[in-house]
């Protein structure tokens, strides 16, 4: 079943993604179709099944907190679309 345009707009807001009116319509249909397919999972009883997020028996991985060299700031910031005095610049927030 297709999502409503309102649902699509809510999800797009959560994802920080602006969509055209046309995209909203298309996604409402397509996401509905994909979620309809995913409904198939409900054919299975998963009562008592432990969720598997990750296949490795690895949980917390720690290392010594040692000071190591970092790449030069200028190299890192060279990809910044807008920088000034070693800071990234964005539109006014408050």
């Amino acid at each position: 079943m297709a999502l409503t345009i309102k649902e699509v707009e809510h999800v797009a807001m959560l994802a920080r993604l602006s969509l055209t009116e046309e995209e909203k319509k298309v996604f409402a249909e397509q996401l509905g179709a994909i979620l309809g397919y995913v409904e198939k999972l409900n054919e299975l009883s998963t009562e008592g099944v432990e969720p598997l997020a990750h296949i490795l028996p690895v949980f917390n991985v720690f290392r010594e907190d040692e000071v190591k060299p970092s790449p030069p700031r200028e190299e890192i910031m060279a990809n910044g679309p807008l920088t000034e005095d070693g800071y990234y610049k964005v539109p006014k927030i408050v």
Binding site: L3, E7, V8, H10, V11, A12, L14, A15, L17, F27, L31, I34, L35, V38, L41, N42, L44, T46, V49, E50, P51, L52, A53
Partner: peptide
């Protein structure tokens, strides 16, 4: 969009958690 929907409030258990359980199977 699909991933954000599946993780959003009210749908997490029905989709994401369910999928992780199926992954175990």
């Amino acid at each position: 969009m699909l991933g954000t929907y599946a993780l959003s409030s009210g749908y997490y258990d029905a989709y994401y958690l369910k999928a992780l359980k199926v992954r175990r199977l």
